[in-house]
Structures are given as structure tokens and as C-alpha cells.
Design a binder for these strands. Structure first.
Lengths: 209, 209
DNA sequence: TAGATTGTTAATCGATTAACAATC
DNA sequence: TAGATTGTTAATCGATTAACAATC
């Protein structure tokens, strides 16, 4: 299979969200045209996107909502279990830990870690917050696949490097820095402050025009 | 001035971050070539990006780090004050409230709101958490420009609509839904779960190949 | 002046949109 | 069979990269 372009992949979760809503509204089928109106994109783009994966529709009919939802879910890896721990148990780490929908979607958060003695031992949904010094043994023993890094950038790189050597293959990185490893280590960055700056760019643009 | 493309704008905060680091390392000037190596992009792209705004460099010299940092900061609206409140004072709302660097960058968070009686009255860095029913009067009286929406998607749309009618011009939206208003209302979405799905897409892709 | 490096134009590449034949 | 709508090819548009003249 040809490598799917980044921009196509980045649209899949949004399709998935809209299809989930349609499903909940008991809508059985939808055409690319209807979906395009709903999502505010072109019908062409929708069909092109899906045809990167061989196409999920039927001429004259459109797309079956449930089927399409499931197939996109599979593409997104949501039919497999993903073991994840959270390193950095501040507000952001706890926010992610408490995010409701993870369990339904195959994610299993098994522990939170922090280096702050005031936090260690504190009760959460996923047991007590653990001492970060134990995270390395923990990820090996429990075969953790994903680590969410919700800690200050100063600590992020060093900890991530050690975790790589302990077999972690993917990072969901909220630290304010770019991490990069060899090609087989996956890093997905979420830079919240950069998103806020995009917003203020547009405010400034409006004010100056 | 021509409209700057979205993709260029989305790169500005990253430039800003790298320039800030260079500044802290007391590096005075940098060429597009050096910066390109550091940031893992092409020098051409850097020069093209900056020339959307008229260019900030000098032939034979390169770019002055401090000057470029300041100019990009201006473009990003960081030299102006931005009054912001947070609606939804759960973990995510509090995470944002506690995010360190906002004050330096012209942001002024003035209050947090929630509808949960257990949270209302709780002390935070920005005073006690307030009752959400008072947010409408508050944003009018205090001329709030930006509202961070860190609440469940069910409540988001209705509250945002009311806030628009109270003069709010920009939303930093963490709710799991797309908001859209007239063109002069700015919405910047952060869909955390979609970012995690991009990560698991890449895991699945690797497993299946 | 010579060397360096930008600003900018031209070439290439990739993504989006349009069009339509295939087919349910 | 006729109508609808996909899958797919072709055309267009925009973004990235390469090249180089301008200039510090």
C-alpha cells in the first residue's frame, strides 16, 4: 500500500467524529455530498480521502454509516488495545487521565507518575500517583506502548530517551519542545501555547487590517 | 497586504519558540541555513515564510535573532494585551489557568467559571471559581476578548453563542465539537482525542505493514 | 572588493477540485 | 431500466524546493 499523506490522516479523526454522531442519530447511510455539507468540505475531497484506502462506498447508494465508522476506527487503530501511562501528574496529566472516552476507544491508562513528593501517593482513578523513578521498570514489566508526557520541557527529553530504551514506542508529547528519535519511534506533539498563538495571530490580523 | 496562508501562520509559533531558545543562548544572528538545520525544515521555506511579511533579514548577514523574535511576536499579537476567561474549571481548565508562560506573553486570565457547585468557590490563582451563570455579565463588564472553552461538548455551543452576543470575539475551543459563527468570530479548536488518534493511526500502520 | 546570504523568481511537487465513466 | 452516486482520471490550484541575481 502506498504511504498515505499526513494531511489525509489528519482528517480521519474528524470523519470518525461526524460518523459517530450520525450513528447516534440512527442515520444509516450518507452520500459524500451530504457529508460534505455537514462537515464543510468538498465531496470530492471526501471521496478522494476514502479511496486512499480502497473506497468504502457503493455507487448509487453512498456510504453505510456504521460500516464506514468501523472501518475508519480500524484505520485509526481503535480496535486494538493501547496501554498508556501518564508521566507528569499535574493538572494536564490528570485532565487526560480523566478524559471520559478513552476506555471505549481501546485505550487503557494504567498509571500516573510524577516526581513531586506532594503528588506521589495521591489517589486517582488509576490508583495512586507513583514516583517517577519507578516508571522505567513499570513500562518494561507492563509492556506499555504509549507514554503521555505532561511535564515541563526541561525534564521531557531525558525521560523520553530513557523510556525509549525501555521499549516505549510512542509518545503523546505535551512538553513545550520537539522530541525526535529514530524513525520507528512515534511522536505526536500537542503544543497548546502554539495553538493559542495562532488564535492571537488572527486577532492581530483583524485589528491591523 | 495579501492574505497569509494558514500553513504559514501555523509555522510562526514554532519559529518563535526556536528563536526564544536562541535568544536565551545569547546567539545574536542566524542564517536561514543554520535555522533550517536546527528546525529540520528547508532554508527556502524559512525565507519564503518570512518574505510573506516583507522579510526580516539582510543579505550577507542573515537574521538578527532578537529582532526576528520581536517581529514574529508582533505578528502573533503577543505585544498586545489579551483578556481571557476560562469556562469550565475542571482539570483541563485549571491546567490552562496554571500554565506558566501566559502572563509574559500578554495574556491576562481574569477568571474561571464552572457550573459544578462543588467547584464554585474553590480557590485558584485567579480568585475563586465563579458560577457560570455570571459569565455573561462578567465578559461584558470586563471586556473579555478570548474565552477558553474547557467544558463538555453538550454545553459548549449554547454557551458560546450567548458569549458571542455578549461581545466575545474569539474562542479557544477544547470541547469535542466544531463551533462556527460568522466570519468575524475567531475559533481555534484543540481536539486532544483527535491528536491521539493520529498517533494510534501511525502505530496501526506500523503493525499492519 | 570578495564572500555570504538574503529576497525573489522559476520549476517542481503534491493536494484539491472538477468531471465523468463505471456501476449499483 | 433510469437515477444516483461512487471510484477514478484529468485539470487546477497552491505550497515547497531550487536557483540565482541583488546587495549587504
Amino acid at each position: 500500500m502506498e504511504k498515505i499523506s499526513k494531511v489525509v490522516v489528519s482528517r480521519l479523526p474528524r470523519y470518525y467524529r461526524y460518523l459517530d454522531e450520525l450513528r447516534h442519530q440512527k442515520i444509516e447511510r450518507i452520500s459524500s455530498k451530504e457529508l460534505s455539507k455537514l462537515m464543510n468540505v468538498t465531496a470530492s475531497q471526501i471521496r478522494q480521502d476514502f479511496n486512499n484506502f480502497g473506497g468504502f462506498g457503493q455507487q448509487g447508494y453512498g456510504y453505510n454509516v456504521d460500516y464506514l465508522y468501523e472501518e475508519i476506527g480500524k484505520l485509526l487503530g481503535l480496535h486494538e488495545k493501547h496501554k498508556m501511562v501518564i508521566v507528569g501528574a499535574g493538572n494536564l496529566g490528570q485532565a487526560i487521565a480523566n478524559y471520559g472516552n478513552f476506555k471505549n476507544r481501546g485505550f487503557e491508562i494504567t498509571a500516573l507518575f510524577d516526581r513531586n513528593p506532594n503528588l506521589i501517593g495521591k489517589k486517582t482513578k488509576y490508583g495512586e500517583i507513583r514516583d517517577i523513578k519507578n516508571v522505567y521498570d513499570y513500562v518494561v514489566e507492563n509492556q506499555i506502548e504509549i507514554v503521555a508526557l505532561t511535564l515541563p520541557k526541561e525534564a521531557a527529553r531525558e525521560i523520553a530517551e530513557k523510556l525509549v530504551s525501555c521499549g516505549v514506542r510512542a509518545f503523546w508529547n505535551f512538553a513545550h519542545t520537539d522530541l525526535s528519535f529514530s524513525d520507528d519511534i512515534i511522536v505526536e506533539n500537542v503544543h497548546l501555547s502554539e495553538s493559542l498563538m495562532k488564535l492571537t495571530y488572527r486577532i492581530a490580523e483583524k485589528n491591523h487590517q
